[in-house]
């Protein structure tokens, strides 16, 4: 086993994700806030999940997670609501239509949009201490 690999496998057992404020996430990713519930300053993100396939989001039950996705249709909001997702970040500067925004407002789910791609957004948030759910 090489030194590098050893280091990675060690850290894999020990890490646990940091709680990061949603506001801080929006600053790190220079994201615009499209739907901003009243309590947005108090929202903490415990983990993140990046996916475009909604069944995967549902499979892992991700309460209090941030969902990072390239899809903006209303059924993404439904998925988030059903899976217990706390907030959604759209990548590649994608903007949801009015139906999606309306549903997110109804469900009190904050929507953010960044110019970054999913990979870079994940990289920056990982660097900030955000982790995936441990349920795999």
């Amino acid at each position: 086993m090489t030194e590098l690999r050893k280091k990675t496998s060690d850290s894999r057992q020990s890490f646990s994700g940091k709680n990061v404020k949603l506001k801080e996430i929006s600053q790190l990713l220079e994201a615009s806030i499209i739907v901003s519930p009243e309590n947005i300053d108090d929202i903490n993100i415990e983990s993140a999940c990046s996916a475009d396939l909604m069944s995967d989001v549902l499979y892992y039950h991700s309460p209090n997670s941030l969902l990072i996705t390239g899809l903006t249709q209303p059924h993404v909001i439904r998925t988030a609501e059903i899976a217990g997702i706390k907030a959604i970040l759209f990548v590649l500067n994608k903007k949801p239509d009015s139906r999606t925004i309306e549903l997110a407002q109804q469900q009190n789910i904050p929507l953010l949009s960044t110019q970054l791609c999913m990979y870079t957004a994940a990289g920056i948030l990982y660097e900030a201490g955000v982790r995936s759910l441990r349920d795999y």
């Binding site: 999940c49 994940a122 990982y126 995936s132 795999y136």
Partner: peptide, 21 residues
């Protein structure tokens, strides 16, 4: 890999951008 996409992307990002942060 058994890792999730987010986790894997994060780790690859660190490996490919060692001078970041």
């Amino acid at each position: 890999t058994s890792l999730h996409a987010f986790e894997l992307a994060g780790r690859i990002y660190q490996l490919l951008n060692p001078n970041y942060s």
